[in-house]
């Protein structure tokens, strides 16, 4: 066995014993480096005179060098792989820790309820308008056919503002209905609009009252709108908001600005609950805003957003919705 063959015999075990890249580098130098036996053998090839013999010897050297290099490369690859595995293993973290993020807040339940209901009516082809919360007594009452002597105008019901030197002309709107009149004054039929917004009453806060609450008003006026359309539209709303199997019934009622008027009740959570007031727009209102009541008919409705939210989410005390308690707000997802 030649010197080089001996080298080839010991190389596998020595290489496999190298545990670090540095050890392997040393073996690399020893086996195939400049001062290795293989390099020396290559250099001494010139001393072989016979061309064929020299060719054979060179081939033999190269075979051995290639085999050793392959062993070195394989071992290097193993060592690097193990090193990377070790590094990654040391890099492990507890991924169950909370993620890195900006915490998310919530919309107020009344807001999200309102957005959802607005979207239902947008889906039915309505547009959306908003109006002033501090309103004139004309738009809040007179334009809506509410007589001068109606008790709802009293200070026991309505909050008035000391504005423009007068104390009985500007008030905090008691419903979103004034926007019916404002909107119709500015837009010709067909009129399909919903008006979400804040309303005010002279009521102290308790489980069912608040001086400030939120309504959504709806109005549909065209040449052929009937009570049947009112029923169908509001039933569709109730089913979209409370569930497709929600039953509704309409009970006659009275409002000065609609006639006939009704209250819609819905059967939800095992009982009938009064949901909203509605009716066919009173011709007197059309006259006040310049629509011809002989040509146009329409329906209107108004609903309390707090009530909708409370009914749907099982909230029994209105004051819950006034709280800034995080435990409440966090539920409004």
């Amino acid at each position: 066995m030649t010197h080089l063959e001996e080298l080839l015999a010991v190389a596998p075990s020595r290489i496999s014993e190298a545990m670090t890249i540095a050890e392997l580098d040393a073996l690399d130098a020893e086996f195939v480096g400049r001062s290795s036996a293989i390099a020396a053998a290559r250099r001494s090839l010139g001393e072989i005179a016979d061309g064929a013999e020299r060719g054979l010897a060179g081939k033999s050297i190269n075979q051995i060098a290639t085999q050793i290099s392959a062993l070195l490369d394989a071992r290097r690859s193993d060592l690097l792989g193990a090193q990377e595995s070790r590094r990654l293993s040391e890099d492990a973290v507890d991924v169950t820790l909370p993620g890195r993020r900006i915490p998310r807040g919530t919309h107020h339940l009344v807001q999200s309820t309102m957005d959802e209901i607005v979207d239902i009516f947008v889906g039915l082809g309505y547009t959306v308008a908003t109006g002033p919360e501090a309103e004139t007594e004309y738009y809040n009452f007179t334009a809506l056919n509410i007589p001068r002597t109606h008790p709802s105008r009293l200070e026991s019901d309505t909050l008035y503002l000391d504005y423009g030197g007068k104390k009985d002309e500007v008030l905090l709107r008691t419903h979103t209905s004034p926007m019916q009149a404002r909107y119709m004054e500015k837009h010709d039929p067909p009129t399909f609009v919903v008006v979400p917004g804040r309303v005010f009453r002279s009521d102290a806060v308790d489980a069912t009252h608040s001086p400030v609450f939120t309504q959504l008003e709806g109005l549909a006026v065209d040449t052929n709108i009937t009570l049947a359309d009112l029923k169908g539209t509001l039933a569709s709303f109730a089913q979209q908001f409370f569930g497709t199997d929600t039953k509704v019934k309409f009970i006659p009622h009275y409002f000065p600005f609609t006639e006939p008027s009704a209250e819609m009740h819905a059967y939800t959570n095992g009982r009938w609950i009064e949901l909203l007031g509605c009716g066919m727009v009173n011709p007197a209102v059309f006259e006040n805003v310049g629509y011809d009541p002989a040509v146009y008919t329409g329906f209107a409705f108004g609903m309390g957003m707090e009530r909708m939210a409370m009914v749907r989410h099982g909230i029994t005390d209105l004051r819950t919705l006034l709280a800034s308690d995080r435990r409440v707000l966090e539920q409004y997802r």
């Binding site: 039915l124 082809g125 309505y126 547009t127 959306v128 049947a228 359309d229 169908g232 539209t233």
Partner: peptide, 13 residues
Amino acid sequence: IPATVPSGPGGGL
């Protein structure tokens, strides 16, 4: 009285 659902002319938000 029957129940029918008219569609408005749109406009949306």
